[in-house]
């Protein structure tokens, strides 16, 4: 039995949307070095749509794979849909994570939420509509 599903390993080995968006209008960073996983999400939102998303992650295999999968799930989507993203959806899209690794997928959800809030406070545009 492998530690992770093939999907997880694929996203871990070839993470999608890695990097930085220089003119991002929503940035969220969650986690801390104490617990071992840190995720940073960069969003470029235009007309209520997440036009671009990139991430940087310090963390384990499932943290990197969750970040990568989460970016794929939200890219090109309207903000109000993105707001609904749950860590369960991220984990399911990865064909599951080991129980003790679920907290890593929670970080992906939280990083996106933090980035949306940052967008709201920068632009004054509500993310609740």
């Amino acid at each position: 039995m492998a530690l992770y599903s093939e999907k997880v390993m694929d996203h871990f080995r070839n993470p999608r949307n890695v990097g930085v968006i220089e003119d991002a209008n929503g940035i969220g960073e969650v986690g801390n070095a104490k617990c071992g996983d840190i995720m940073k999400m960069y969003l470029k939102i235009e007309n209520g749509i997440v036009e671009d998303v990139k991430f940087e992650t310090f963390g384990c295999g499932s943290a990197i794979a969750s970040s990568s999968m989460a970016t794929e799930l939200i890219k090109g989507k309207p903000v109000k849909e993105v707001r609904q993203l749950t860590n369960k959806a991220v984990a399911e899209a990865l064909d599951g994570l080991p129980d003790y690794k679920m907290h890593c997928s929670v970080l992906a959800e939280e990083a996106i939420k933090a980035a949306l809030e940052d967008y709201q406070s920068r632009t004054g545009i509500s993310i609740d509509e």
């Binding site: 530690l3 390993m9 871990f12 080995r13 071992g36 996983d37 310090f58 963390g59 384990c60 295999g61 943290a63 990197i64």
Partner: peptide, 11 residues
């Protein structure tokens, strides 16, 4: 410094 051990091991 700056990286996490599990991802290092997997790679």
């Amino acid at each position: 410094e700056g990286i996490e051990g599990e991802s290092l091991l997997l790679l």
